[in-house]
């Protein structure tokens, strides 16, 4: 889901950079000292995840892990994903520097959305099973939202929106399922060993 250099029009690149800057500023404001190691770990996981590929027919999709980042980090997902994308562009050639802002927005906005939704849904939930299921659902939906978001950005630069969205969604069906299952198990594991990391509070009141 990395958009390459040279595809988008300049106003979109600038707009994306501005929105990304605002999101990163908000993330930096919200992040607390104790969250920094967790943020570092998820940035690292996101950075490496893009090398795990899923091939479906002629398309090639990879793990994104933005839903997991959003669920665990909230707004801090913005700076985390920006740093991850920066090093993916520099070291792997995924995406590019000029599209960094747009790619950050396309990946971090659904992530933060999934995170906020997750926090709201598990507000008073005490069943680890249900919380883990919601994490899985959030992570899966986050991939769908990221595909739609990327399609919308491509459409703003003159592509057929519906077709692009459809192609991106189909290409990411397995990624969606994979990340949902992964998020379920990570959430279930965290609830056993350190629920505060996932919920920001102890499991039982």
């Amino acid at each position: 889901m990395h958009i390459s250099d040279g595809i988008l029009s300049t106003p979109i690149l600038i707009g994306g950079a501005c929105v990304a800057a605002a999101g990163v500023a908000q993330g930096l404001r919200k992040i607390e000292d104790n969250d920094i190691p967790k943020t570092a770990l998820l940035t690292a996981a996101f950075f490496v995840a893009s090398l795990v590929h899923v091939r479906i027919g002629p398309t090639s999709a990879h793990l994104i892990l933005n839903g997991m980042a959003g669920i665990l980090l909230g707004w801090a997902a913005f700076p985390a994903l920006l740093i991850g994308l920066l090093f993916q562009a520099l070291l792997f050639g995924h995406g590019g520097i000029s599209v960094l802002g747009v790619n950050t927005v396309a990946i971090a906005v659904p992530a933060v959305g999934a995170g906020l939704m997750f926090r709201r849904m598990v507000h008073r939930e005490t069943s680890p099973r249900r919380i883990a299921l919601m994490a899985g659902l959030g992570a899966g939906l986050c991939i769908a939202a990221t595909a739609l978001f990327s399609a919308a950005v491509l459409a703003l630069s003159g592509r057929a929106w519906l077709r692009t969205a459809w192609v991106l969604l189909v290409a990411h069906v397995f990624v969606m399922a994979g990340e949902a299952v992964l998020a379920y198990f990570i959430a279930a594991y965290l609830l056993r060993v350190r629920p505060a990391l996932l919920l920001g509070r102890p499991l039982a009141a």
Binding site: A40, F47, V48, I83, F87, L91
Partner: peptide, 21 residues
């Protein structure tokens, strides 16, 4: 145009990320 995605790039990236944080 060719990027090497060998272990060295991965380790370098992880090093940068943890260093920054």
């Amino acid at each position: 145009h060719h990027h090497h995605h060998g272990p060295s790039a991965i380790i370098a990236g992880l090093g940068f990320i943890f260093g920054i944080f």
